[in-house]
Amino acid sequence: MPAILRYRDDCIDPVLYTYFRSSCSWRVRIALAWKGIEYESQYVNLVKDGGQQEDYSTINPMKQVPALVMNGSTMTQSVAMLEYLEEVHPEKPLLPKDPLERVKVREIVSVISGGIQPLQNLSVLQKIGDEGKMEWGKFWIDKGFQGKFI
């Protein structure tokens, strides 16, 4: 992993600031791959330094991943990135055509991005401490997936 991040707002190709264990980063990488969009990866080691690299805070002041620099703009929330990618690259859609099926996909996205992932991500688990983090994370993951989506 590179020691120093480079802020690339002048490039033509997209740059994704990412971390290999981040589920938010995974969803963006999957969408970019599905849509056939080539990009450069810049790695942010959240465990080693918690995204505290000084130059990364200029890219994402919340020091979270992912961040996507594309078409001269920096995006910092994965669901918003997915919506943007869908709008600017409608070929190979991420969502089904049927409106009710689209609602179901959006429900699942909302549960994961708003009800599961934020409550069991690295920064929250670090605040909880080693003793209770597994029980805490499992509780919120289980609760989120108890809903009937299909």
Rank of each mutant, 00 (worst) to 15 (best):
V44E: 03
G36I: 12
W34T: 14
L32D: 06
I37E: 01
R21S: 05
S41R: 11
N45M: 03
E38Y: 14
K35F: 01
C24V: 04
L32H: 00
G51N: 02
I37F: 01
S22D: 07
R21V: 08
S23N: 10
W26L: 09
C24P: 08
D49A: 13
Q42M: 12
V28S: 07
K48D: 11
V44S: 05
Y39I: 00
D49H: 12
V47L: 14
V44Q: 00
K35Q: 03
N45V: 03
S41K: 11
R29V: 09
S23A: 13
K48N: 13
Y43K: 05
V47Y: 12
G51T: 01
E40M: 14
E40I: 09
L46K: 04
E40W: 10
G36L: 07
E40T: 09
K35D: 04
I37R: 00
G36A: 07
S41Q: 14
R29H: 07
S41V: 08
Q42N: 08
I37G: 03
G36K: 08
Q42S: 13
E40C: 11
L46H: 02
R27K: 11
R27L: 02
D49I: 11
V28E: 04
F20L: 15
K48S: 11
R27I: 03
D49W: 10
G36M: 09
S25I: 05
R27S: 00
G50C: 03
I30C: 13
A33K: 10
N45T: 08
G36S: 07
E40S: 05
W26D: 02
D49L: 10
G51H: 04
Y39E: 03
N45L: 07
S41T: 15
V28K: 06
G36P: 06
G50I: 02
N45G: 04
R21L: 02
Q42W: 12
D49M: 11
R27M: 01
V28W: 06
E38Q: 14
G50L: 05
W34I: 14
S23R: 13
V44W: 02
S23P: 06
S23Y: 10
I37V: 00
K48L: 05
K48Y: 12
W26V: 06
A31W: 00
S22E: 05
R21A: 03
L32C: 08
E40Y: 13
V44L: 06
Q42H: 09
K35H: 08
G51V: 00
E38G: 07
G51S: 09
V47I: 14
A31S: 04
N45D: 01
